[in-house]
Design a binder for these strands. Structure first.
Length: 212
DNA sequence: ACATTAATTGTGT
DNA sequence: ACACAATTAATGT
């Protein structure tokens, strides 16, 4: 598919034509395969990604390499974190991994800056991105703070199904446990419960979500 | 086809 | 949380 079509097909179509042209002119298209690490903690960003297709999961990691899943990025999204990092020349606080095969277009920071002044729609796009991210982050915090592990897990699973559009999740219990920052045994037990309730079907290395 | 091994998953305490 | 059992997949012979 043409980049042009991908742009007009998504949230980016609210951006004026001139701007879309410049995005195509100055942006660099990159492709990632599922599970590729796109940005790691400590990386310095010199450009901001716009997500054309696919999806990305954003993880936080503490000092002792414990992981925690934060949220997903889908096509039409940009990474508020990298906007933030770029603007203050900070290194990345998060790790971004391709959830599935993903295409994105990298915008050099200089252009991001320049466009904020030149294109009102870009300016509101950037602000809206921060707003969306803040909302989703709140949802994540709610889920961690107020939901019991079983509902958290179910939310995690259906979230994954929604963004990938695929009801099979190819992850071991251990991998899920890492992302939710809990132990494998807990995940195994809860998954077993969910299977008994008919919400999922368990297989080795993968599971199938029936209800979400 | 069978045995061995390693990794994943299940369960009781 | 820990320990161990059971199951499954992969590999070699």
């Amino acid at each position: 598919m043409q980049i042009k079509d991908l742009l007009s097909d998504s949230r980016f179509n609210t951006l004026e034509k001139d701007l879309q042209d410049e995005i195509i002119q100055f942006g660099v298209v990159k492709d990632f395969l599922a599970n590729d690490i796109i940005i790691d903690i400590g990386d310095y960003m010199k450009s901001v990604p716009l997500l054309l297709s696919g999806s990305i999961k954003i993880l936080r990691q503490d000092d002792d390499s414990h992981e925690l899943f934060l949220y997903h990025l889908e096509s039409g999204d940009t990474c508020a974190m990298s906007l933030n990092c770029c603007m203050h020349s900070k290194s990345s606080e998060i790790r971004a991994i391709a959830e599935e095969d993903t295409k994105l277009i990298m915008i050099p920071m200089s252009k991001v800056d320049e466009w904020v002044a030149r294109f009102p729609t870009w300016r509101s796009f950037v602000f809206e991105s921060f707003s969306i991210r803040l909302d989703e982050m709140l949802e994540t915090i709610d889920s961690i703070a107020f939901l019991k592990m079983d509902s958290r897990l179910m939310k995690y699973l259906s979230d994954k199904v929604k963004v990938t559009g695929n009801t099979t999740i190819e992850q071991t219990h251990q991998e899920i446990a890492y992302e939710m920052n809990t132990s494998r045994v807990v995940i195994s037990r809860l998954l077993k419960q969910l299977e008994k309730q008919g919400k999922i079907k368990l297989h080795r290395y993968k599971l199938e979500v029936i209800e979400f």
